[in-house]
Amino acid sequence: MSKDLPNFTIRQLIEAGVHFGHKSMRRNPKMSKYIFTTRNNVSIIDLNKTKDLLNQSLKIVKEIAKNNGRILFVATKKQASDPIAESAKRCGQYFVNFRWLGGMLTNWKTVSQSIKTLQKIEDQLADTEVGFNKKEKLVLQRERLKLEQNLGGIKNMGGYPDLVFVIDTNKESLAIAEAKKLNIPIMAIVDTNCNPDNINYIIPGNDDSAKSIKLYCRLISDAIISGIKENMIASGIDISKVDNDSISASLNEFKKSESKKNDKKEIENNDLEKKKLTVKKSDSQANDEEPKESDKDTGKTSTEKKSEKKLSNKDDKKSSGKKENKKEEVKVLTKKPTKKTTKNS
């Protein structure tokens, strides 16, 4: 294992209870290759395989964080909700720990609109100049609490994550299905009763013990912090003054600066695209305004030819009208006078 990655031993895994699986009657046959043995009808996970796969997962997490990637922590069970939120906040990442709303990834447009409403409510409550009644304040606070529970961990995410870290794949099956639909890689703690098919990076282990969940969260957050520190060093920032306690604040500042740079690049790219479109439009208009070969010979523009066509059409109509009047006059002249009938005396 490299020195930059967080260190752990098999003894720490045993003390945290990572090796305990579910009863053998609840075992998923696809997880049999990760099981060492069974004792008292309980499956025992092979910790050598867990250690190797966990090391590989930590390397992947570190690389994603080094490249300014977004990592989403997902765990809605009671024993995992607090550790997930703490570890995500510690490393400046994003989390869902209350309830996974349907379409949280696949219907990101509507979710982003509700995040905007949450931010508006927070701004309204923070503004002291605006005077609200007690009832109005209570209504706003209740709405804010509801939105904060569901969307508070992803309100600053700003787009799709680059990796989804899941605890308990059976409970978070909806999140896994949405991530798979969007081709987002999934890293998960997979217990003996779970299906490992849809998971890109499998970590076999106990997903029910509070100690084991805290250990996973600590290792993942440490790997993310080490990756972001390397990125900060590469960008020329001095990390010697940064402590582990104030790491989240420094990470947020660094992310803001990086996001501003990315926004500037996007604006520049959009300006270039707009310029290209205007040039294309001007070229097409110039081609349309150029006289055709017949116009070049006569020296007349297309607008002059159109006006001439209109005048010629008017003359044709007038001439046709005159011809019709002449025909009517001729018919009147050629009519024979009717003979008057006389009665016999």
Rank of each mutant, 00 (worst) to 15 (best):
T76Y: 08
F8G: 03
R218Y: 00
T37V: 03
N107M: 13
Y34K: 00
E63F: 11
I233V: 15
K306V: 13
F98L: 04
S257P: 04
D245E: 11
N183H: 13
K241D: 00
K317I: 08
R144G: 07
N107T: 15
F73A: 06
S319Q: 11
S294T: 06
L151F: 14
E129Q: 10
R142V: 14
D295K: 00
V139T: 12
E258P: 07
Q113H: 15
D263G: 07
I10D: 11
K77Y: 01
S345L: 06
L311H: 15
K275S: 08
E328I: 13
T301V: 05
L118V: 08
G131E: 14
K109R: 09
N200C: 09
A85S: 10
T50W: 02
D168P: 05
L138Y: 14
I115T: 02
D207K: 15
T76G: 02
L333T: 07
E230V: 11
D295R: 02
F36R: 05
S226M: 11
I115K: 03
K135Y: 14
R142I: 09
N195L: 01
G205L: 00
T341D: 11
V190Q: 06
I45K: 00
K78M: 07
N97M: 04
T301E: 07
I213C: 01
L272C: 03
K300N: 10
S81D: 00
N262Q: 12
L53S: 06
D82T: 10
S259H: 04
F132K: 06
S246A: 04
D4T: 15
A65C: 12
C91P: 05
F20S: 11
K296M: 09
K265N: 04
S312T: 13
S87P: 05
I247G: 00
K343C: 02
E266W: 01
P291G: 03
E230L: 15
Q79K: 07
I176S: 02
T334S: 15
D4P: 05
K137G: 08
P83N: 01
E172K: 10
T37N: 08
L182F: 14
N252W: 01
S319A: 09
K171R: 13
T169Y: 03
T298C: 11
I115C: 04
S320P: 08
P161N: 04
Y160G: 02
D191H: 12
S57V: 08
H19P: 03
V96M: 04
Q12P: 01
S87L: 01
K327W: 09
L54Y: 06
N170K: 14
K274Q: 09
M104Q: 12
N107W: 06
K323G: 07
I35E: 04
M31C: 07
L145K: 15
Y94T: 04
S250K: 05
A126Y: 10
